[in-house]
Amino acid sequence: MSDSLHLVCPHCHSINRVPTARLGEQPNCGQCHQPIFAGQPLELTGSTFARYINKNDVPVLVDFWAPWCGPCKMMAPAFKEAAALLEPHVRLAKVNTDVEQTVGAQYRIRSIPTLILFKDGRELARQAGAMTTQDIVRWTRSQALG
């Protein structure tokens, strides 16, 4: 791991350079001074998706979901809990495939919920189906930090 990481601010979307040694100190954005990690998933849109996937030096776990999906609704609290457990080493985000159909189509989302783990702009792993908090954390750590 390098001496510093590039992290996208969830509030103003600016890219911050954070020393690796300070990652666990709840760093704030240099631009808007808000916390870079909020302990909860971010809602990504078609306009913000690529920036988070390509510009974060930590892996990004994305939950592709829809509001009408029962398993998605059941998994939402587990995904939120997983964000608190995995940050700051993994960023968690959500994409509503009803609203962001282009992003869903780009990644050939066929069933929801689908989790995709990205690192350096590339897909590392994919998992379809609802999972518990412990399963999300275990699966993500084995794929990203393994």
Rank of each mutant, 00 (worst) to 15 (best):
S111I: 11
I53N: 00
M75K: 14
E123V: 09
A105D: 13
K55Q: 15
N54L: 09
R126T: 12
A50P: 05
T102I: 10
R126K: 15
T114Y: 00
E123A: 03
G129L: 10
R110Q: 15
A82W: 06
V103N: 01
I112W: 05
R108A: 15
A83C: 06
L85R: 15
V60N: 00
A130D: 11
F79E: 01
R51P: 04
D63I: 02
E123F: 07
D63C: 05
L124V: 13
A93D: 01
L115P: 07
W68H: 14
A50R: 14
A125S: 12
F118N: 01
T114F: 00
T97K: 03
R108P: 04
I112L: 06
V58S: 02
M74I: 14
R122G: 04
R126I: 11
L124Y: 05
I109G: 02
K94F: 10
F49D: 00
V90W: 10
S111Y: 11
A130T: 06
L85G: 13
G70N: 07
K119N: 08
W68C: 07
A105P: 08
R91N: 05
A66G: 12
P71G: 09
Y52V: 03
D98G: 12
L85D: 15
N54F: 07
D120A: 02
I112K: 04
F49W: 01
Y107F: 15
G104R: 03
A84E: 15
P71K: 12
V99H: 13
M74W: 09
D63S: 05
I109Y: 05
E123P: 09
D98A: 14
L117I: 06
A125Q: 05
V99W: 10
H89C: 07
S111H: 12
R108Y: 11
A78W: 13
A66T: 09
E100D: 13
A84D: 12
W65L: 05
A76W: 12
A93V: 01
G129M: 02
F79Q: 03
V103K: 00
Y52T: 02
Y107W: 15
T114S: 02
Y52W: 10
W65R: 05
W68E: 14
P88Y: 11
E100R: 05
R51T: 11
A84T: 05
T114N: 01
G129N: 12
G121W: 05
F49A: 03
P113A: 05
L117V: 08
A82V: 06
H89R: 15
A82L: 07
R51V: 07
P59M: 02
E100Q: 10
R108M: 11
T97N: 08
K73G: 08
F118K: 00
R110D: 10
P88D: 04
A125P: 09
R126F: 09
F64H: 06
G129Q: 12
L85I: 14
P59Q: 03
G70D: 04
Q106H: 10
I53T: 03
K94E: 08
V95F: 07
R122P: 01
A82K: 13
I53Y: 02
L92G: 00
D57K: 04
C72G: 07
A82G: 09
A84Y: 12
A130C: 09
Q101R: 15
A128M: 14
I112F: 04
A50D: 14
E123S: 14
A84I: 04
T97W: 10
A66Q: 11
W65S: 08
V60F: 00
R122T: 08
A84L: 09
A66L: 08
R122S: 08
R91E: 13
A50L: 00
I112T: 11
